[in-house]
Design a protein around this nucleic acid. Structure first.
Lengths: 334, 334
DNA sequence: CACACGAACTGTAACGATATAGTCCGAACG
DNA sequence: CGTTCGGACTATATCGTTACAGTTCGTGTG
């Protein structure tokens, strides 16, 4: 019914193995033979049977992604991008929820759960160094996200500080004189909030300014409703605030609503930059200026690291840091 | 390394085939033998290797879902539910976008595209009877959604008229005297809008009322922004409107915003019922009363039809209609 | 008692690919 | 000229499962 390697082999007058070698770019096939085989492949419209290949290679074709929660758009977008990238090679992504707790993430990493995957991408949030360091799995694991994790693992990092600095520099460069960081914090130096706060400070000192101590607006939760309420309140109290760096796009959406509540026009009275480049930011008027943490770059390299490690478990682990870029839209004046 | 059927066979002192038969519930194995085999399965922690089974059975483990567009929440939720249901049996869902046009849907149904699926679920929107009737595929196809399609196919329908009637009856029962249908239409009798409009009319006549001819508020597009604008305008013009049946939840969200714009309180001044039971409706205050088109039911039966047809291509096609139910939340007074 | 029959179970050959261990043959070398 | 060497290619076994065609063996029948 369907065309198999056997048909291609017959049509081009070579053995099964030669066809296999040609298709997989393995050595051991002459130049003319390669051409002849590829012609037959084209002519017959042959495509490899991934199921058979997987059986032979002992792979499942499934990659696991473990994130703290499904319902947050950041992870949704990450999952969508990864799924697309993996689909190119006929693989699938299964997303598991760890519940933002260390226990959840460790449970999701139990042997039984992972046995069905060829590799696992772990979004390390809420996991401490020791937890990750104690991990012993038979399946390749690639870490995704924050900094400060054991170098024993492949890791695609996100340059939180550089991104935050970039955002703040842009606000200052567009004429903001009094820039709030919403969702910032000085606690737990390793946390995403603290690192982005450091970037916000660095942008100030680099420009010869001193970040005001009450420029950090802490939020109990990085959620829309919470940000909206606290930003509204703060803007009513501090009429001189003319710029906001929101630590996430979620927070930025809340801040936009809060600013409107407080009677500020964006970007005329108040400029705003977010962080994450969620696709929704493109559609909410006047368009959210934000930091793209290099999603495409991260996904591309994460998949590459996975493939390398599946191929050879003993290759040296790599730590990569994705470059952040500024995406200018309507919430800033330049 | 991993435990195979061979290990189970050895451990329970039977042949490979007996283990296979027991596991798949095939006849030809005695009662004690079954018990013995299942004990060994438990003890060794055996799990079937889906890759091997697929190779042997000539299946890929992938099901295709073809929807008009990705970005609409209705299809997103449908896809999520289906993916979950299929994951139970270790299969995967691949979602393809047809672009809401007949050409797109037909292109997505081309032989080459479908060859990689065990079966395809086709959400028939924008396809006419003839287009579907001309379809000749080697892969099992199950239709999803609207009515009026060739009985040659398995089809899980959605009871648009009954659902719309249910919504309107509820509004009338809760004291609404003047119920608008937003997004309704009398054109193209087969369209979703027209059928739901018929349901709205039937609810009126069943109650001994005459639906007012200008009770149908047509929308150029079933989108939030559009519904918001036209509902606001209409409510300002017609102060006596005290109920709205929105043909979709999307439209209902827009209508809620439009009502607020027009200064109406929900549900005090104006009651509202949507259609689709999108999960978002639960979270938007005061909670959207809506019609659940039987998502779970549809998904359950769609998967069953798929499996039946994969098993036996010649089984008689079935047309099923999912039962609609009312989900009462805060936008209605009872 | 010979025979047929069906239930319970087994042996073997696939499914389509790849890893491994060859085989073959022409060129290079002493 | 005989030997070695390496590049090009092939034969076979195998991955874990299931379809199909047997093989037993106990029971019921004439």
């Amino acid at each position: 019914m369907t065309i198999t390697m056997r048909d291609v082999a017959q049509a081009s007058g070579v053995s099964l193995m030669t066809v296999s070698n040609v298709i997989n770019g393995q050595p051991g096939a002459g130049a003319q033979t390669r051409v002849r085989v590829m012609e037959a492949v084209e002519r017959l419209g042959y495509e490899v049977n991934l199921t058979a290949r997987r059986l032979r290679k002992g792979l499942t074709g499934n990659i696991g992604l473990i994130v703290p929660r499904f319902d947050h758009p950041y992870f949704g977008e990450l999952a969508a991008r990864l799924a697309t990238a993996l689909a190119e090679t006929g693989r699938h992504l299964s997303v598991e929820q760890s519940g933002a707790s260390a226990e959840g993430e460790l449970a999701a990493l139990s042997h039984a759960r992972l046995a069905t995957y060829d590799a696992v991408l772990l979004n390390v949030v809420g996991l401490r160094y020791e937890d990750v360091d104690n991990l012993r799995t038979s399946v390749p694991v690639v870490l995704l996200g924050e900094q400060g994790m054991p170098v024993r693992f492949d890791h695609v990092r996100l340059d939180n500080e550089a991104g935050a600095r970039l955002a703040t520099v842009h606000l200052l460069g567009c004429g903001a004189r009094n820039v709030l960081i919403v969702g910032g914090s000085h606690e737990d130096q390793q946390s995403m909030q603290a690192i982005r706060t450091k970037g916000w400070e660095r942008a100030h000192t680099d420009a010869g300014l001193t970040p005001s101590p009450d420029g950090v607006l802490r939020l109990p939760e990085l959620e829309v409703a919470c940000a909206r309420e606290l930003v509204r309140e703060r803007l009513l109290r501090s009429p001189d605030v003319d710029g906001i760096f929101a630590v996430t796009d979620q927070v930025a959406f809340g801040a936009m609503a809060g600013a409107r509540d407080a009677g500020r026009r964006i970007p005329e009275d108040l400029q705003l930059v977010g962080f994450d480049n969620l696709s929704f930011g493109e559609h909410v008027p006047p368009g959210l200026t934000t930091i793209d943490p290099g999603h495409d770059w991260m996904v591309e390299h994460a998949v590459r690291l996975i493939d390398q490690r599946i191929e050879d478990r003993d290759v040296a682990p790599q730590q990569l840091t994705s470059p952040s870029t500024l995406v200018v839209r309507g919430t800033t004046r330049c």
